[in-house]
Design a protein around this nucleic acid. Sequence first.
DNA 1: AAGTCTTCGTA
DNA 2: GTACGAAGACTTC
Length: 970
Amino acid sequence: MNDKASSAPRPLTAGDRLYLIDGSGYIFRAYHALPALTRKSDGLPVGAVHGFCGMLIKLLRDASNGEKPTHLAVIFDHSAETFRNAIYPEYKAQRPEPPEDLIPQFGLIREAVRAFNVACVDQEGYEADDLIATYARQAREAGAEVHIISSDKDLMQLVRPGVTMLDTMKDKTIGEAEVLEKFGVPPEKVIDVQALAGDSVDNVPGIPGIGVKTGAQLITEYGDLETLLSRAGEIKQTKRREKLIEFADQARISRELVTLKDDVPVEEPVEDFAVREPDPGAVVGFLKAMEFTTLTRRVASDLEADAEAIEPVPVAVEGWEAPAADGGGAAAAAAGDGAATPGMRAAAAADAVRAVAIDPSAYETVTTLDRLDAWIAQAREHGVVAVDTETTSLLAMSADLVGISLALEPGRACYIPVGHRASDGFDFDGDGIAQLDRAEVVERLKPMMEDPSVLKVGQNFKYDWLIFIRQGICPAPVDDTMLISYALDSGRGGHGMDELSERHLGHKPIPFKEIAGSGRQQVTFDLVPVDKATAYAAEDADVTLRLWLALKPRLAAEGKTAVYETLERPMVAVLGEMERAGVQVDRNVLSRLSHDFAQGMARLEAEIHELAGESFNVGSPKQLGEILFGKMGLEGGRKTKTGAWGTGADVLETLAAQGHDLPLKVLEWRQLSKLKSTYTDALPGYIDGEERVHTSYSLAATSTGRLSSSEPNLQNIPVRTEAGRKIRTAFVAPRGAKLVSADYSQIELRVLAHMADIPELKQAFADGLDIHAMTASEIFSVPIEGMDPMVRRRAKAINFGIIYGISAFGLANQLSIPREEAADYIKRYFERFPGIRDYMEGTKAFCREHGYVETLFGRRCHFPNINVKHPSERAFNERAAINAPIQGTAADIIRRAMIRMADALEEAKLKARMLLQVHDELIFEAVDEEVDRTIETAVTIMERAAEPAMTLKVPLKVDARAAENWEEAH
DNA sequence: AAGTCTTCGTA
DNA sequence: GTACGAAGACTTC
C-alpha cells in the first residue's frame, strides 16, 4: 500500500463519491477493444496499459458527469479459484488462457495504479466483483454515491438509486434504464434472469433453450425464479416446461453462481480509498517509461511538473522478454514521424473519433443547388469525403437512386434527397417534396466523384460503385471501410457497418427497420419522409467517415497496407464490372428441367408412400424419422442435439445399403427436390430483361479471403451428379460468343507443397504427375501403373483431408472405414511426408502463440478461440487454422489474377469479359473469333498470378476450354 | 413474421 | 476433417 494520509481517515458520508474500477474486467475489455500498441523502443505490448492510464487520468481530472471522485480504488481478481468453485467446479472452467501479449500488461497495470497513488485492492478467495459489491454496499449505507467503472453485465445487479455503472470506453452511464434495456428486467431481478439464461463465457449452465429474452419474459410473468420453478408445470410450451422442470436445480445453482457476495470481510476499509495527490516523479516517470508521450505531457501539465526533468522509472516486466535488438519495433518506427509510432497514432485517431458525439438530428438536408455546390466545394477542399447512397433495393443492379449522403468530418454530414415520393399514394413523382432533380445532382457531383485528388470513402463501396456507374459516374479513388476492417480483423467478427460502429465507435446506428418499418409494413427508402431519411442516411456517412479515421491508420501500424492495396481495394471495381455484366441464363432449359424433376418427384413420392403404408410429407425429416425408426423399427439411433432422429444422407445411405428400398427412394427424391427448389425454380426469378443473372459477390464474408456469392449463389451450381450438371447447360453464351472456363488444377495442394516445402510433392508437380496416384504409390507402396482405382481414391481423400487439417474421425467418415484404419493411413502418410506434419504442427504453434495465421501474401486470419479449453472446440479451431493459410493463399492468387485480367484483356485488344468466379475457376464470355486468344491470355495471367511478389516452388497449372454452355466448358 | 435447425449444393 | 449460402421444416411470437 502507498503512503497513508497523514490524518486518520474519516468515514464516508453523504456527498462523497466513491469510484470503484473493475481492474480485471477493464484489462480484458481494453485489450480487445483498443488497438494493439507496443512500446516503440522494444515492442513491449502496452495497449491495455495505455487505455487504462488514459481512463485514470480522465477520471481524476473530472469524471464524465463533471464530478471528481472523493474516493477511488481499483479492484482486481486475486486468483482463479474462488468460493464459487466449491459450489460448481466447472465455474469459469473453460476460460481461455489470456493472450500472450496481454500477460505482461497485468503487472504493468498494477504498477500504473501504484504510480498514480490510487488504492489497489484484491483479496484471496474472492472475485473483484464481490469486493465491488461489498464496498458499494458499505458506501451506499454511509450515504455516499457509488460509481462502478465497468461494463460487465455481472455487475448490473448492483445498480440502484445511488449506484450507477460507467462504461468509460463507450462513455456511457449504465443506470436502471440501461439494465432494463439489456436484461428486460430491473436490476434486482437480473440474477434471476441470469440463472435461467446462463453464461457460456463463465460456464454458468442456466437452462438449455432459454436465453435472456425468454428468461426476462418468464421472470416478469412469475415475479422471481423460485416462484417460476415451483409453478413450472403451468407453462404452456411443452419443451420449455419440460426443460424448466428437468433443470430446476441447475438454475438454482446458476443463481448462486451469479449472485455477488456483498458481505466479504474486507481487509482494506473503504475510508482508505480517499483520493490522494500522486507524486509527480512516480507517475510521470512511469508514463515516460511506457513511452506514452501524449499522456506524459497531459499529466505533467496537470501536476504542473516539468516532464523534461523527470527520469523514466524502470519497470520490471513479468511474462515478457524483449526481443533481440533490431526487433519489429524498428520497422514500425520507420514509418513514424518523430516521437509517435504508427500504432500510437492509430490509437490516438481512434480516441479522437470517439470524442465527438453522434447526433442524427444535427445533419443538413440539402435542397438547394447553392447548398449542394457548397458541400461539393468543401469536399474538394477537404480532399476526403465519406459517401453513401440510399436506394430502393439491396440489389445494386436493379436499385433506383433515392438520395446521397456526404460526410466531411465527424458530426458534419448532409443528405441530398433526389428520389423521394410521398407515401399518401397520390404524389407518384415526388413533385410535392422539396428535393433537387436527380440528373442535376448527378451532373454536379460527377467532377468531384471522379476527381483524382478527392478520396471517396464508402462502406461496402462496391454497392455504391454500381449505383454511381449506373448513373454515369465512375468514382475514383475510393477507400472502403469494410475492406479495411477485413484486411485488419478477419476472423474477429463481422465487417458490416452497424457491427463496426458498435465495435469501434461504441455507437449503435439507427436501424433501417426503425425508419422503413419491417415485415408487411416495410416501405422502400423513397417512401421514407425526408427528415427521417436525413437522420438515417447522413448518420451512415458520418459513421463511415469515423470508421475510416479510426481504421485507416491501423493499416500502416499493423503492416497490412499491402494486403489492402493489392488484394482488397482493386477488387471493388473488378467485381463491380463482373456483377454488372451478369451471365446469360436460358429460362427455357430451366423450365423444362423443373418439369422433369417434378415428374420424378411425384413418381418417387407415390412409391415412398406405398412402401411406408401411409401418406406423409417426405420433405419433413421429423415425419420421415417417425416412419423409419418408429413405424418400421429400423436400427439407426438418435442423433441431432435437439433429440430428433437424424435422417441425413449418410444415415439413409447406410439403411439403403442394408437393402431397404424406402430410404433409397427418399435419397433420390431429396436430390430432385433440392435441384428443383434451389436451382430450376429459383433461378428464373433472378433473370433480368436482358436474359441475364447478376449475382452479388461479398468480399468480406469469409474468414480466409475467399469470395462468397449470393442472390443467387452461383458458386454452388451442381456439377457432381448427372441430373445436377444439366442445370449448368442453362448458363449460356449469347449468339456468336462462347463461355470460357479456366480453372486452377490442384491449387491448394500446390500451395501446400510450396509452403511446407515438400521435395517429393514439388517434384511430382514439376513432372506433371497424377498427384493422388503418386501419393497412393508412396504410402501404400504400389506402382502407379495399373493402380487399383480404390487405392487412388483413398489417397485422394487423404490429400483433401490434409488440406482440411485431417482427423482420423473425418477421414474415416469420408471413406466409410473404421477410425483405426483411418488413423493408420494418416500415420503412414506422415511417416512418408514428415515435412507435412512439421508444417501442420508449426502452424498450430504459431496460431496458439499469436492468435492468427497468415497467407503467403500476408493476409491475416484471426482465431480468437484457438486456446479455449474445450478439446473439440479447440481441435476445430486448430484444423481451421491449418486450412486458412492454404485456402487463403489460393484465394489471394486468384484475386491477383482477377485484378490483372481486365488490363490484360484490354492490352490484348480482346472484347472478352470476366463473368464469374468459383474459388478456383474463372468464367468468361468471348466472341467466337477471339476464343483462342482469350484462353491464352487468361491461362497466362492465372498461371503467373503469384509473380512477382512470390516465386512459387511449384508451377501453377490452369486448364481452360470454351463451349456454348457452362456444362460443356467446365 | 422472425429465428433456429437440418439438409445439401459448391470449392 | 476446411470454407460458404439457400431452402424447407419447425418453433415461437
